[in-house]
Design a protein around this nucleic acid. Sequence first.
DNA 1: AACAAAAACAACCGCAGGCAT
DNA 2: GATGCCTGCGGTTGTTTTTGT
Length: 329
Amino acid sequence: MGRQPCCDKVGLKKGPWTAEEDKKLINFILTNGQCCWRALPKLAGLFPISFFSFSFFPYKMRESFSLLFVINLRFFLLLLGLLRCGKSCRLRWTNYLRPDLKRGLLSEFEEKMVIDLHSKLGNRWSKIASNLPGRTDNEIKNHWNTHVKKKLRKMGIDPFTHKPLPTTTTIQLPDNEQAGGPKPTPQQSEVADQDKEEAVVVETPLQSTINDQAKDGDKSIHAGLFDSMEVNNDFCIDEIPLIEPHEILITCENSSSSPSSSSSSSSSSTDTTVGGRFLSNLLEDLEFATTFDYNEIISSIWDDDFVTSLDLYNNCDDNSNIMVEPPLL
DNA sequence: AACAAAAACAACCGCAGGCAT
DNA sequence: GATGCCTGCGGTTGTTTTTGT
C-alpha cells in the first residue's frame, strides 16, 4: 500500500513563482495564518477577506469637506486557486516570503556560527538554521555548498571533518560527499543521540559568548546576537522585490464587525470567517468563479483606484469606520 | 557583442517522523 | 500495532545570473 502523493500533480504548476502567486499566498497567510498546507492552495485562491462585505472608502476628500462615502461593493470573487501543491506553498513561504526573513549574504559572524554549528551538528541544516534567526535551512545549505566549503578548503580545512586537510593531497571531493553527504563523525553521532533525548541545546563556543551577553539582561540569545551585529530585524520590504508594500491587502471590515469576530480569523480554516461567511461555504462557489475571466477579475480587484483608496484609508488616523487587522504570524 | 562556463540561488523530490484514528 | 495523513528535512536538480574568453 503506497503512500499517497502530497497532492494531485495533474494540472499543478511548477517552477518559479509569479508575483501574482506570491500575492495570493501572502494575502492568505497574513490574514488567516498558516493552516494546513495541503488545503492552502485552494483557500488562497479565495480572494482575501472582505468578501461580499461593504467597504466604505472616503472618496473625493480633497475636493469636498463633506465626507462622501462610496459604497465600494467589491465582488471579491473567488479566483482560481493557487495551482501549486501545498508543499510548494510551504517552501515558498518559509524560504522566501516570510516577513521575518533576513535576506542577502550571511554576515561574517553568521558564517562563523554556521561553521561552528556544522562542526557539531553536521548537515542538519534546520537545526543550524534554528540558531540563526531570519535564516532558513535552505539558505544556509546553499551558502554552505557555494561559499563556505570553498572557503574552508582554501584555508586548508576539511569542510566535512573540520580538521586540517592533508597538505600533499590535491583538492578532491571526498567519497562521502559524492555519495550524498558526510557520515556523521562520532562527535556528531553523539549530538544526534542527545537530540533524540529531547531539546538538548548544543552550545558552541560562539553561542557561549552570546549567552554571556544575554546573561547581562533579559535579552535573549538572539537579541544579543542582533545587538552585536547591528542587524535590522524589521521586515525589510525592499529586500523582497516581488511584492510592493501596498500590494499586501490588509483585512478591513466596517465598524459593525466586532473585534472578536475579526480576531477569529486566526483559528482553524474551517472556523475562519471571511466577510461573515465561512470558508467552507466559499469553497462551494469555486466553480461559479471559474466561469469568469481570470485576468479581468485580477485587474478589477487590483485597479489603481482601489489600491489608492485602500492606502488612503489605512493611513487615516480616524479610522472610525474601519478596522485594520494586524498580520497574524 | 556573443557565447560558454561557472556560480548562485530557488524550487523540487522523496523519505522519515509524528500524530490521530 | 497498523494505517493514513501531514509536515519537516536534507539532497538534488533546474534556472538564472555573473564572469571569463
